[in-house]
Amino acid sequence: MSDLAVNITNLHKVYKEGVVALKGINLQVPKGQFFGLLGPNGAGKTTTIGITTGLIRPTSGSVTVMGHDVVADYRQARSAIGLAAQELNFDWFFNLETLMQQQAGYYGVPANVAKPRAARLLDEFGLGEKKKVKPRELSGGMKRRFQIARSMIHDPDILILDEPTAGVDVELRHMLWDYLSRLNGDGKTIILTTHYIEEAEKLCEQIAIIDNGKIVTEGTPQELVAGMNSDGLVIEVDGHGPEAEASLDGYVVTRSDNELTISTQQPELQIAEIANRVTAAGAMLKDVKIRRTTLEDVFMQLTGRSIDE
């Protein structure tokens, strides 16, 4: 028995119109991991998730979920996954309680188990009082809560969330972060796609960045940031910029007028040394900033764009 929750091997997808969405994706997500898939719009995140959950047919390659192939053994594979999709589309004929119970039924959960579980999940997500209301009468934040609550209705081993915090307010975002951390602590594997770098850094143990249908890098957030090697100091002087630059012989410095960027792996240990040299050269320090590489920098470097584009 493999220890992988999701194993994606050489996955390709070409849509009917000829759009090549995936160009050979390989991803291994161990059981119990909190995994982040980052990428700009159109990079292939939703296609990857669509194939994993049975919404999109792969062109070639394979995906297994808890060891079950998503095409050949689709029943076992799909039973293991709860999906909170990016878009909030709901059956508009029924109220929340009924929709929860129906969804449980589709997964084969008998009614006597589904009813109390539906009630508990609705309560946990603060929707207990809305159980007789239809989804279209909910606010956007409530719809998102309902969608995540419903994705847990069959108690899946793996929870996949496609942009769960897009467009939600800060309070709900923090509530979801807490909830997801708790679920992960209880042993659930969580796969998250997100636009919020902060979210990925805060939650994910492992991150893969996808761009243009390919995985461009993968690692822990710390590894990805360390690989960039762009930590340093940014100092601003009160005139005498060229003299300050000249005084920093031995450092890698780039200067823009009176602002100097100095690359160093341990900026906090170099502050005193650098300040002394610059002052001795006749320049007054106006401002000193430590620059830490962020995932945003990694993302920009690898994809050539900001994640918000």
């Binding site: 049975g54 919404l55 799909r78 039973s79 589309n89 059956d91 508009w92 589709y106 997964y107």
Partner: peptide
């Protein structure tokens, strides 16, 4: 598009 809720089930 709520057909997706059915297509993801077993």
């Amino acid at each position: 598009k709520f057909i997706d809720d059915i297509l993801i089930t077993p």
